[in-house]
Computed example of a mutant assay.
Amino acid sequence: MILLISDLHLEEERPDITRAFLNFLTGRARSAQALYILGDFFEAWIGDDAMTPYQRSICDALRALSDGGTDVFLMHGNRDFLLGRAFCKAAGCTLLKDPSVVDFYGEPVLLMHGDSLCTRDEAYMRLRRYLRNPVTLWVLRHLPVSTRHTLARKLRSESRAQTRMKANDIVDVTPEEVPRIMTQFGVHTLIHGHTHRPAIHKLQIGEQAAKRIVLGDWDRQGWVLQVDEQGMQLTPFDFQLTLPAATHP
């Protein structure tokens, strides 16, 4: 069994999400072969060298899961793209490139955070290219911690304000980008997060049936995609439940 989650946006100000995640790690995730976290794991991350005691506790919880035999994979999101090797080493997890093709029970599957699919949001795409530039990343990581805190607060505030003003189709994935990227990587299944619009979309790429699975964000409830030999099951669960039951959509 393989589990995939994304968009937890963990922060100290949301203890309900934190408790649900820690319960998830000590419950359902312990029986999984692997756990994939596809970005925006933290609401903000300003560098491995600036890890808070709260973030350290999350790191330690991931390490305990990894030490228990579950492989943990982590992908950058637009909120935590400064997560680095030091955190992954301490947490016992592997940092995945975005995008990455993985093998799930003999099927190649494309994993992404999903923000790079939103190509109609031209302002965001320009900002993304700037922030992910290796030179920019080097500069950001070497700024004083206080300056990084200020920049992170500014970016989060501007992002929320701009998202509220944009049309829904602008902040969702570009429909034409989905088959293009799937064809490029030679897959018929794409799994991503970012949009906070959980669903399983049936597609047709050429003569082949395909699907795009959108993971849900953790806010009023959690979302988990379970992959096993029987298929893929995307299900929500209440934060009070540590072992959400998987049902077919």
Rank of each mutant, 00 (worst) to 15 (best):
A123Q: 13
A123T: 15
Y124K: 15
Y124R: 03
Y124S: 01
M125Q: 14
R126L: 12
R129L: 09
L131S: 09
L131R: 09
R132W: 03
R132S: 03
N133W: 05
T136S: 14
L137R: 13
L137T: 03
W138F: 04
W138Q: 12
V139K: 05
V139P: 01
L140F: 08
R141T: 10
L143M: 02
V145T: 08
V145C: 03
V145I: 08
T147Q: 06
T147N: 01
R148Y: 01
R148E: 00
H149L: 01
H149N: 04
H149T: 02
T150E: 01
T150V: 03
T150W: 00
L151M: 06
A152G: 01
R153C: 07
K154H: 02
K154T: 00
L155N: 00
L155F: 07
R156E: 00
S157F: 00
E158F: 01
S159C: 05
A161L: 07
Q162K: 03
T163H: 01
M165R: 08
M165T: 08
K166G: 02
A167W: 06
N168F: 05
D169I: 02
I170L: 11
V171E: 04
V171K: 03
T174R: 13
T174W: 06
P175E: 15
E176P: 06
E176Y: 04
E176W: 01
E177D: 11
E177W: 01
V178N: 07
I181V: 09
F185K: 02
F185N: 05
H188Y: 11
H188M: 13
T189I: 07
T189C: 10
T189Q: 14
L190M: 12
I191A: 12
I191R: 01
I191P: 06
H192I: 13
H192C: 15
H192Y: 12
G193W: 11
G193F: 00
G193L: 13
H194I: 14
T195V: 15
H196G: 13
R197A: 12
P198Q: 15
A199Y: 05
I200W: 09
L203N: 14
L203K: 09
L203P: 06
Q204G: 08
Q204V: 13
G206P: 05
G206S: 07
E207Y: 06
E207L: 13
E207T: 14
Q208N: 10
Q208I: 04
Q208H: 09
A209T: 13
A209Y: 12
A210W: 03
A210K: 10
A210Y: 10
K211R: 10
R212C: 03
I213W: 05
V214N: 07
V214S: 09
L215H: 05
G216P: 11
G216Q: 14
G216N: 08
D217W: 01
D217Q: 05
W218C: 08
W218T: 03
R220G: 06
R220Y: 05
Q221G: 00
G222A: 05
G222N: 10
W223M: 04
V224L: 14
Q226L: 14
Q226E: 13
Q226D: 07
Q226G: 10
V227H: 09
V227C: 10
D228N: 12
E229D: 14
E229C: 12
E229Q: 12
E229V: 04
E229F: 04
E229S: 12
Q230R: 13
Q230E: 14
Q230S: 13
G231I: 07
G231T: 02
M232H: 04
Q233F: 15
Q233A: 15
L234M: 10
